[in-house]
Amino acid sequence: MSMLNSSPHGHQGHSTGQVMQQVMLACVPGLTALTWFFGWGTVINIIWLALLALGIEALILHLRGRPIAFYLRDYSALVTAVLLGLALPPTAPWWLGLIGITFAIGIAKHLYGGMGYNPFNPAMVGYVVLLISFPLQMTRWVLPVGATDALPGFGESLVMFFGAEPFAGIDAYTGATALDSFRQQRGGMLVSEFWSVTDVMGRWSGLGWEWVNTGFLLGGLYLLYKKIIGWRIPVGMLAAIAILSAVFYDGGSSASGGSPLMHLFGGATMLGAFFIATDPVTASTTPKGRLIYGAMIGIIVYVIRIWGNYADGVAFAVLLGNFSAPLIDAYTQPRTYGHRK
């Protein structure tokens, strides 16, 4: 095929690399909030995973006989590293990240054909592999500023990263996350009672988490404004979570599932809605399908949080959504011009 003879001859000028760069840029507010409330661990995770991701991507591209520089410039490996880095606990030791990113890029991405061909979100595959294999390390979150006197400093974060016990002992810094506490430690209390006895809850949701989610919401709105992502998947997912949590709020009784605000601004909701579920490669592609896909993920997230075995369910929900995307697409083809309504 000769490129010269084919119309169109003009181009908007955006490239896939630029799209990915914007996504990473939009992570900054959320990352800032994470670092502010939970220390340097996430930053260290991201740097480590980024180095590994580039290395593994280059190695596999080399093994597959593909042009390395050309593919590295699409920045997709870096985005996977950033998303997995944001999802890992700040106390994660180096080998946890290594295993996760190897699975994400080596298996979930390249074994399925590389960029554009992977049916499952690579970062979420890496995350779920770790969550199932190393539940202890994966649920050991740092206590947020406000719930603890001492946040681990950069040095101590590095010590934990190298897999050693920090000077004050790892338990001095860590504890259950807000969503986890809400599930495990409420023991029949009213929502308001639980709020008053625990120090991991903030104004509407988990302490710190509400700001982390606000950060990712801001980043997501930026991506929407830049038209990098569409509104349908985030709206579908957030609406489903909001509606379900409103239905099961039950006035904050002892059987309450927690308020809509707690769920919208708790855990990985906003990160999931704007940065993970919107991964175009693995999501539904039709306009109607994207609403359904988003709503389905929202429903599964809520179901896992309330009736499942895990404190949060974004990763599982996204992977289940990935499974259904081709089916959703098949049934939601838009009506083409000139075809009967």
């Binding site: 896939t16 050309f70 592609t285 039709t286 011009y337 000139g338």
Partner: peptide, 20 residues
């Protein structure tokens, strides 16, 4: 040079006859 399709759907948004 052509890169991999990432199914971003920008094309769906601009198609004047509602194709995918």
């Amino acid at each position: 040079p052509q890169q991999a399709c990432i199914r971003c759907g920008f094309c769906t948004d601009v198609c004047p006859v509602n194709l995918l």
